[in-house]
Amino acid sequence: MGILGKARAKSPWILHFDAGACNGCDIEVIACLTPVYDVERFGMMNIGNPKHADILLVTGTCNLRNARVLKNLYAQMPEPKAVVAIGACALSGGVFHECYNVLGGVEGIIPVDVWVPGCAPKPEAIIEGAVMAVQRMQERASGKVQPSEDESEDEHA
């Protein structure tokens, strides 16, 4: 692992996208930034630009309209990248999995690396999930794990 990989592991930047959650998981993601949990201790920063992000945190069920946005955001992130799905809705659709406008979890839209179960998960679990995503990203950079699926077909989505 070169100096780049080390730098990346020391300070992974996070992008958060709400794909139709009830807000419960979103506020728990923001709660991680507050003084009580202070995720910036690990060098993690929440940023708004996908082109600077290493980890994508996705909360909520997907529908047709935001799946397009989600695919775009994922395609704009540079490799190596990792995706963390947070909360029952992002994992499978949760209590909404049979609703007419729900495609199910995030998995069907973009590949997911780490799953954080809970409704809503505790901030501790979200931090743990993000740390696991960093590990997965490092493994991928050093070639231990296959790179995330080819998304070339989605590039122009």
């Binding site: 963390v84 690396d113 780490v114 799953w115 954080v116 179960p117 809970g118 998960p121 505790k122 501790e124 679990a125 743990e128 999930g129 696991m132 997965r136």
Partner: peptide, 8 residues
Amino acid sequence: YHPPVYQK
């Protein structure tokens, strides 16, 4: 709490 997982 349930810890995060890599696989279902």
